[in-house]
Design a protein around this nucleic acid. Structure first.
Length: 472
RNA sequence: GGCGCUGUAGCCAAGUGGCUCAAGGCGAAGGUCUGCAAAACCUUUAUUCGUCGGUUCGAAUCCGACCGGCGCCUCCA
């Protein structure tokens, strides 16, 4: 039984999709005005892990992530760079797809863009207007929060209390300071679309209501995003969608904790923004994913070099085992010992962990327990049969690779490509072996060191010398 | 002011009433293997879970107070 912490009810609830085995899931994607940062990456990776786990459990997940491609920040950048907003959005959309691919994030079923849904957005605003939830002031259309009795139900805020807050700017045009824009009148030089209210563009919140409805329906299962989106963005989405349809918008709301740098929020003013793109120049995608998976998605995560280098280190243990079993599988040893290992136990433990509100840190612990126990079995036995290695591989493929995305067997396998190269290495190993037999350790160490310098690491063992190629 | 999160070993981080009074990763120390390394394995590394009280047969886990860190309430993942 899968439990999910639902922001709406502030409790862990049993997950019951509307139409099993189908699950409809929407995640707020990027505003494409810049490369996305490592904090965004956390949301994307954790929603990816959640999605993969649902699939692991046999659900058919329709996963939709929007791209906000018209927005104040994009317009600002286009003005700064003296080019049109469309090309800014296109460039960073392209970069977004490159980066999520590098992070080994499984592609969504759909990446709807706001600018491709202007019609749906306008229709939705019209509907809200007809129902009396929206009002037009000189080409700006606002949502009237006082008309929606449930306003504040997600964030636990009350309209009166919000109004007494000092930080809300007073806008003369609005009937209430909390009212938010559904349609923004175009200013000179801004991108615009024709609408019943004149030339303008959609407000930020409306696109998610329009697009999630179009691609997932009026009511769907899971909506996820960063913590800071709870208010006002998700609150406003609920207000828009539920006012328009009269139906419940989303059953389970999932929110990701913030990523801090040195215990401070990432911000432009502090100059501590790291893009995912830059981080990936230093660390592997798997290390980033492991570092994130080792912290529960909802809690805060303090990002540091130490965090990633320790994840990179831990990953090596996993990769070493993966390489070992690939080699052994190639041996194709039909006969031999099958060490006793309770694969079902690890599988159950993994599932139990993930079933408890996607407790990925616990799931990682199960995987590392498994790795240790397999290594021990390998150390204690000789002539282990193929059957054992295939079972080990299957488990790791389903969990570490399939759900957490912290291992990639296809990369492990790639290492064995290049027959000539391999023959040369084997030759050197043989020469070194001869040198060792003659106790010419100066030469044998030289061969080992020189190979290491070019990224090939030799490892002696009882059964002979093996090597692995280290990525440069 | 309102709402919410959080304080567990040198670092990161699960656990949220007894069954693990404490997983897992990194780091550190010792050992096995090895010519030496590397990898792997074994052992050790929190009698203790911010502090002080309380509830209970029993609490890191519930309650209260206090101390500390953070977020949201304005664009933000």
């Amino acid at each position: 039984m899968l439990l999910i912490y639902n922001t709406l009810t502030r409790t862990k609830e049993e997950f019951n999709p509307i139409n099993p085995p189908n699950v409809k899931m929407y995640v707020c994607g990027p505003t494409v005005y810049d490369y996305f940062h490592i904090g965004n990456a956390r949301s994307f990776i954790m929603s990816d892990i959640i999605r993969r786990y649902l699939e692991y459990k046999g659900y058919e997940v329709k996963f939709v992530m929007n791209l906000t491609d018209v927005d104040d920040k994009i317009i600002k950048k286009s003005i700064d760079q003296k080019r049109d907003a469309k090309s800014v959005a296109e460039d960073y959309s392209k970069a977004f797809f490159e980066d999520i691919q590098k992070l080994k994030i499984k592609p969504a079923n759909d990446y709807p863009k706001a600018t491709n849904h202007i019609k749906e957005i306008i229709d939705l605003i019209k509907k809200l207007e007809q129902k009396g939830f929206a009002y037009n002031i000189d080409g700006n259309v606002f949502y009237n929060v006082n008309r929606f009795s449930n306003y504040g139900k997600l964030s636990g805020k009350k309209i009166d209390e919000l109004e007494s807050g000092a930080r809300i700017e007073i806008n003369d045009e609005k009937k209430d300071p909390l009212d938010f824009a559904l349609w923004k009148k175009a200013k000179e030089g801004e991108p615009f679309w024709e609408s019943p209210w004149g030339k303008g563009r959609p407000g930020w919140h409306i696109e998610c209501s329009a697009m999630s409805c179009k691609h997932l329906g009026e009511t769907f299962d899971i909506h996820a995003g960063g913590n800071d989106l709870i208010f006002p963005h998700h609150e406003n989405e609920i207000a828009q969608s539920e006012a328009a349809t009269g139906k419940k918008f989303v059953n389970y709301w999932i929110h990701f904790g913030f990523l801090n740098i040195n215990n401070e929020k990432m911000s432009k003013s502090l100059g501590n923004i790291f893009t995912a793109r830059d981080i990936l120049k230093i660390y592997s995608a798997e290390a980033v994913r492991l570092a994130f998976a080792q912290t529960h998605y909802a809690g805060p995560l303090n990002f540091s070099d130490e965090l990633l280098s320790s994840a990179e280190k831990g990953l090596e243990k996993l990769k070493n085992l993966a390489e070992k079993i690939e080699e052994e599988i190639k041996e194709n040893r039909q006969e031999g010992i099958v060490p006793k290992l309770d694969f079902e136990k690890y599988k159950n433990n993994f599932g139990t962990a993930m079933d408890d509100d996607f407790n990925s840190p616990q799931a990682c612990a199960v995987i590392f327990d498994f790795v240790r126990d397999v290594n021990r079995a390998i150390a204690e036995n000789e002539n282990i049969s193929l059957k054992f290695y295939l079972s080990v591989k299957e488990f790791l493929q389903n969990t570490a690779e399939g759900v957490l995305g912290i291992l990639d067997f296809s990369e492990t396998a790639n290492q064995s490509n290049g027959a000539l190269e391999n023959d040369l290495i084997e030759l050197l190993i043989k020469l070194r072996q001869d040198a060792k037999l003659e106790k010419n350790y100066v030469l044998s160490d030289k061969i080992r060191n020189e190979l290491k310098n070019i990224g090939i690491e030799l490892q002696d063992s009882k059964s002979g010398t093996t090597y692995k190629k280290n990525k440069k």
